[in-house]
Amino acid sequence: MIEMRGVTVRYGDTVAVDDVRLSLPTEKIYGLLGRNGSGKTSLLSALASYRRPHRGTVLVDGVEAFENPEVMRGTAFIRDTLDLNDSDRVRSALEVAGWLRPTWDAEYAIKLLDIFELDARKRISALSRGQRSMVGVVLGLAARAPLTILDESYLGMDAVARTLFYRELLADYLAHPRTIIVSTHLIEEVADLFERVIIMDRGRILLHDETDALRGRGVTVTGPAERVSAFAAGHAVLGEQSLGGVRAVTLDGRLDPDEIARGERDGLTFGPLGLQDLFVHLTSQRLEVSR
C-alpha cells in the first residue's frame, strides 16, 4: 500500500497540493488526470519522495518514504526533464540506471531502444522532444521498479510511438506486475490500460475510482426546455446549454432504466457521456460556477 497522509506542497504562497489523502493498493496501473497546473507533477514529486511535503507524510508499505534509501531504490520517477545531462549519451544513461537499480533489466532496455528505433550512441542533446520522451519510457520500464511513475511521458511522441509505448507498458506490466502511475491529458487513448483513475483539480483529489465505474457515468438529456428542466431536478447537473426551445443538460451518475424509459416517452433523448467529456465537465471551472 502506498499512502499519502495529509500531504501539502507549497511554492511560496501557492498551494500546489492541498492536504491530499490517498491510499493506493500496490500492483495496479493508475491514471492521474488533471488540467495544466492542477498539481499533478507536485503530487507525483511528493509521492516519489523527490520533494519533501510541507505537511503530511508518504508511506510505502507502512514505512516513511522520504530519504529512505530502500524505498528510493524501488521508485522510478520519470519526469519530462529526464534528470540527465544533455551531453550524456543514451548508452551511458542506461548504464548508470543499471548501476543504481537492483531491478534493472539491461536486455529489456536494449529491446525497448530497438522498438523505439533509438540510437544508443546519440547524446541526449541530439534527441528530438519525442525521442527524449522515449528515453524516459525506456528508463522507466526497464527499471522494473516496484513503484514506477511516468509523468507525461508521451510528450512530443507521435501516434505510432505512443501506441508502442502503451503496448509495451501493458505487456511488461502483465509479465511483471508492479505499481505504475501514469499522468496524462490524453485520456481516451490510454484509459483502457488504467485499473483506476485519479482526477486532480486545483491541488485536490476530485475523484479516485475504478476506470470502469466512470464509463457510462454521466448522461446527456436533450429535449424541450421545460421538460428537460423538470427531468433534471434532483440530479447533479454538470453542464447545460440551450438553443431556442431545446435544452441539453449533462447529469452526473447513472440513471435508472425506468427513469430513462419514462423520459423517452416524454420526448427526451438520452446519450451516454464518454470519459473525456466526463473529465472536461468535472474539471471545468466555468461550468462548475453554473452548477
Binding site: 503496448r167 501493458l170 483502457d192 476506470t211 470502469d212
Partner: peptide
C-alpha cells in the same frame, strides 16, 4: 484474463471482472 488483456489492450483487472 492475461491473454484477453494483452489481445484487446485493456487492463487485466477489467478483463478479470
Amino acid at each position: 484474463t492475461n491473454q484477453y488483456a494483452s489481445f484487446y489492450r485493456i487492463n487485466p483487472a477489467t478483463a478479470a471482472k
